[in-house]
Design a protein around this nucleic acid. Sequence first.
DNA 1: AAGATTTTGTTAATTATTTAACAGTGTTAA
DNA 2: TTAACACTGTTAAATAATTAACAAAATCTT
Lengths: 207, 207
Amino acid sequence: MKHLPHKTIARLSQYRRALLLCHAKGKTHIFSHEIAKILHITAVQVRRDIMLIGYTGTLRKGYNIKDLIDLIGRIIDSEEGINVSVIGVGNLGRAIVNYFSGRRTKLSIVACFDVDSNKIGKKTSGIEIFHIDDLQRIIEEKNIKIGIMTVPSEQAIDIAELLVKAGIKGILNYTPKPVNVPKDVFLEEYDMITSLEKVAFFVKTHD
Amino acid sequence: MKHLPHKTIARLSQYRRALLLCHAKGKTHIFSHEIAKILHITAVQVRRDIMLIGYTGTLRKGYNIKDLIDLIGRIIDSEEGINVSVIGVGNLGRAIVNYFSGRRTKLSIVACFDVDSNKIGKKTSGIEIFHIDDLQRIIEEKNIKIGIMTVPSEQAIDIAELLVKAGIKGILNYTPKPVNVPKDVFLEEYDMITSLEKVAFFVKTHD
DNA sequence: AAGATTTTGTTAATTATTTAACAGTGTTAA
DNA sequence: TTAACACTGTTAAATAATTAACAAAATCTT
């Protein structure tokens, strides 16, 4: 197992969630075409991804759900878990924190940051909100590895720089402003405006 | 100009936003490498995308910003504009509505939907909230073409079906639950959990 | 005015990703 | 027990997207 394609990683995460649901229902085995159906992709793709991670199912019974869940976990999770922080406690920041709170996973959101003095010291979905001035200190103290940026776009560049300086290893940028990070920091950017414009384009052309 | 790649469409949207900023600053021309720098991509890619839409800059002066903005508009916008609705007025739904409110664009969010009776009839960022039971009627009345799903994932399937039945042409699904739509409806799905797990994976492996 | 420089436009090469094809093999059924 | 079936695993082909390479031309420099 040398180099897993980015897309495969993303799908593994989705396979696992689907599998966890099946597992909860008491199902023990699953076929590639069943997984495919749930995620609306092709069975070949599922088999290929599973091949890439070196798992092998049993003929006629399909894949053992529990085993596959565990294997995906060993691949995409860190054994010790990874601490995450959210920078910018607006609607989007709150949505994300709320989303993740209460999940029993290897990823935990352990701190939020904002500049609004009304928010500092309070909690959102159980997670404490700190002032951005304390970002460096808290990130070190709490051993935070990932930062999710949900700040206004004008602040994106500065915050990204701050995160890098604080030693963060991965950034998820939900700001529509592209940021620049050294290549040892993994950066994932998602731009809602662009996504909507893309949908609009296809709606327009498919008319 | 036959078939623009999906990725190119997404980048055109980003080029335009960057160009609008430059335009606002009074800049009239821009080089491919300048655009590239802003978006952290390569100049070749910028030139190639611009070639694909059939625009041609002037040597040594680069691209005329105003012209390029207009051309991108003619490609990705609908002349009459497109009406959009948000289904699910939680934190994420509010974040999106708030994001788009006040943009002078061809895309307007014109209605929100929820089931919480405390929210019905109120407004969020100036947009009225209707009950989901009125979805079909409002979508027809207001000529809404796109639905942004920000409901809890258990409801995703039903809501998607409802939207399709109401005649929606494009769906942006922010639920972690994949949904199924007929192929004349354009579907874009984005899953925050998967994105975060992807970042975590690369943080883990790049360590 | 000649030559160097800068930048575009475009074709070709490369890389990444998906899809197709099919051999191999338990399992069921006759 | 033999044939049909329903799966997986894997290699090969096709498609999509990015990157490289370079000719052409406007501008600058000397």
